[in-house]
Amino acid sequence: MENKTLYTIIVHSENLAGILNQITAVFTRRQINIESLNVSASSIKGVHKYTITCWTTPDTIEKVVKQIEKKLDVIQAHYFTDSEIFQREVAMYKVSTPEFQKNPEASKVIRRYNAHIVEVNPIFSIVELTSMSEDITNMYQDLRNLNCVLQFVRSGRIAVSTSCFERVNEYLAHREERYLKEKNQ
């Protein structure tokens, strides 16, 4: 079997109901597990941005991305390996304040990962970390070993490509220019 790579897929679509369903259906059809998913408004008005990660082969990712892009209201879809993007995740760790204060190791862990304490009360404290996926997992393990984690949550990955331009802006401008040119011919 071919080696699988973790790919990050960035999709831009119109902001219409039901598009997420169409995008995930492409994964379902091939029984590919989505590792993480983030959906939010993009920098362009009316355009939504999806950041999806999954493990698969180079051959499959190419077909998956083309089939996503084929959806009518999807503007563009691209895939990247980790070396082609800057990526971050956000995690929140709810820890027991008494346990946290009892153990001097705990605050060292927070400092080591450059995490922030965003809430403290007598019962629990909340630590927030924005970082790479591995760091988030590692800090969770470290805090868990200290027996002070009450709750843990992490976001899906968000990413920007290392290229200089927002491709979607360029693409939309080019599409419109081409349309007007063909129409005037």
Binding site: S13, E14, L72, D73, V74, I75, R175, E176, Y179, K183
Partner: peptide, 8 residues
């Protein structure tokens, strides 16, 4: 209608 920006 003869243009949809997300569809080529």
């Amino acid at each position: 209608l003869d243009y949809i920006r997300s569809y080529d």
